[in-house]
């Protein structure tokens, strides 16, 4: 059997480490998706989401409000599902059950969206009663960004190692 040299052992250890990071990041993204749902639900329960009294609107305006509300929940559901799929695929990749790294693209897009939405916590909710919520949500989003960044870097490194191994035969 081929005996591994020191460099090969180091490379194997590095790859193992990065795969672990990817798997852990995948779990983090799934947990973030659950946090998102929790955030939304608690926000609604504590008055963080503006409610519209449909009785004060005419028929057209009420239809539009309902449609917006419906779209909002659809988009939230879709984003949650995307998070879950990214997390699942990252975990599969990290455990060596898949070699497809396509999950990086939607992960990066989500990361950019998250980054873009972070200032809104402090612009949209300006009252003192929302500061706890804003800080908590900001921190969670920051963690999400770190997770996505770590996952991206680790995946790139794994792909590099695999490419080098293939070239060396």
């Amino acid at each position: 059997m081929h005996e591994l040299c020191e460099t090969e052992i180091d490379t194997a250890a590095k790859k193992r480490k990065h795969l672990r990071h990817i798997s852990l990041s995948g779990t983090g993204i799934i947990l973030y998706a659950l946090w998102d749902i929790l955030k939304m639900v608690t926000s609604m329960m504590t008055g963080g989401v503006e409610e519209v009294d449909l009785d004060l609107l005419d028929e057209n305006e009420a239809m539009i409000a309902i449609l917006y509300s419906f779209l909002f929940w659809i988009i939230l559901a879709v984003l949650t599902v995307i998070h879950l799929i990214i997390g699942y695929k990252a975990i599969k990749f990290g455990k060596g059950l898949s070699h497809k790294s396509g999950f990086l693209i939607p992960a990066t897009i989500l990361g950019i969206i998250t980054l873009g939405g972070m200032p809104l916590y402090f612009l949209h909710h300006t009252g003192n009663e929302f500061i706890d919520y804003s800080v908590a949500a900001f921190i969670m989003d920051l963690i999400m960004l770190v997770i996505v960044f770590d996952m991206t870097v680790s995946t790139i490194r794994v792909l590099k190692i695999d490419k080098m191994s293939k070239e060396q035969g």
Partner: peptide, 10 residues
């Protein structure tokens, strides 16, 4: 196996 002290070395 991977001992925790071994930095992912097997």
């Amino acid at each position: 196996y991977l001992p925790s002290w071994a930095d992912y070395r097997e």
